[in-house]
Nucleic acid binder design. Structure first.
Lengths: 148, 148
DNA sequence: TATTGTTATACTCTATAACTATA
DNA sequence: TATAGTTATAGAGTATAACAATA
C-alpha cells in the first residue's frame, strides 16, 4: 500500500462506492455538455434543471420544487420569476388553498423543454462506445437501482 | 404512440440514451447529498469540485482547470482567490513560463479534500441496495466506459 | 503577436431573516 | 399558530471585455 488517501484506495472500496465515484466522473467530465445544452437555449443550468423537473401538464407546487432540489424556497421564487417573465411557465393559485402556487409550463415552455432535453439527454461517447450488450446491461441495472 | 415528447418516448431510445438519462436522475436525486458534503466542510459545490480535481502533489495550471470545468478563466481566479485566502491551496509560478500559475494543495488542503471526498463518495441507497452481483457488473461496465 | 491570468462589470444563484397572506 | 411564498440583503458563481505581464 502506497500513500493513498482513503478515497483513492481502490482495493478497500465496495463495488457500489467505486461505481458511484465513476458516475461522478462521468458527470464532471460532461459538465461542458450540460453547459452547452443550457447556453444554446439561453438557459442557466439551474433553469434547465427546473424545466427538466416540470413535466408537461403537471402543475407543481413551488414547495415541492424546493424540496426536490434541496434548496431554499426563495431560490425557487427567483428562478420562477425569470422563467415566467420569459413566458416559459406561469403561476396558478389552486382554489382549495390560496397560499400555494402551482407552476405549469406554457406551450412555449413545453417546446423549449423538449428541445433542451433532447440535447441534454444525448449520451456521451463514453456510453455509446460500449458494446450493445453492455449498454443494455447498464440500462437494466440502473432501472433496478431507480426502482423503475 | 401517445402524445409523448421525444425524451419520454421510451421505446425509441437506445439503451445508452436511457442509461444516460437515468444517470442524470441519480445525480439530481442526490443533489442534496452533494450540497450536504460541501456545506459540512464550509465549501460551495464549485469549490468542492475544484478540490476534487486537484490531486495531492500535482501542481495544475489554472488554464487546465478552466478547460476541465468548461468555464471562463476569470472564474477560476475567483475560486482560487477564496480557497487560497483560506489556506487550502496556493499559487506557484513555474520557472519555465512566468505567465502560468500552478495550483497546489497545502497540507491543510489535502486533509480537507480527503475528508470531503470521503463523504461525497459515499454511494446512495439506490446503488447499495443493488445485489452484490449487480454492483460488480455496474462497476465493471463503468470502468470500460471510462477506459480505466 | 499570442497566451496566461487578473480586474471591472453585470447578472444569476443561493441562503438567511423578516415579512405578507392564508389556513 | 403554522404554512406557502415573497422581499431584502449579502455573498458566491459566472461570462464578457479590457487589461497587464510574459512569451
Amino acid at each position: 500500500m502506497v500513500a493513498n488517501t482513503s478515497e483513492t484506495a481502490e482495493g478497500a472500496k465496495s463495488p457500489a462506492a467505486e461505481a458511484w465515484r465513476m458516475i461522478f466522473d462521468l458527470g464532471t467530465v460532461h459538465r461542458a455538455h450540460v453547459l452547452a445544452a443550457a447556453a444554446e437555449h439561453d438557459l442557466s443550468p439551474p433553469q434547465l434543471f427546473l424545466l427538466r423537473r416540470l413535466e408537461p401538464g403537471v402543475p407543481t407546487p413551488m414547495s415541492e420544487l424546493a424540496a426536490f432540489f434541496g434548496c431554499d424556497a426563495s431560490n425557487i421564487t427567483g428562478l420562477v420569476d425569470r422563467l415566467e417573465a420569459r413566458g416559459v411557465l406561469e403561476r396558478r393559485v389552486p382554489a382549495h388553498d390560496r397560499r400555494v402556487k402551482h407552476i405549469v409550463l406554457t406551450e412555449a415552455g413545453e417546446r423549449l423543454r423538449a428541445q433542451a432535453l433532447a440535447q441534454l439527454h444525448v449520451p456521451p461517447a463514453a456510453l455509446t462506445r460500449l458494446s450493445p450488450s453492455d449498454q443494455r446491461t447498464l440500462r437494466d441495472i440502473l432501472r433496478r437501482a431507480l426502482g423503475a
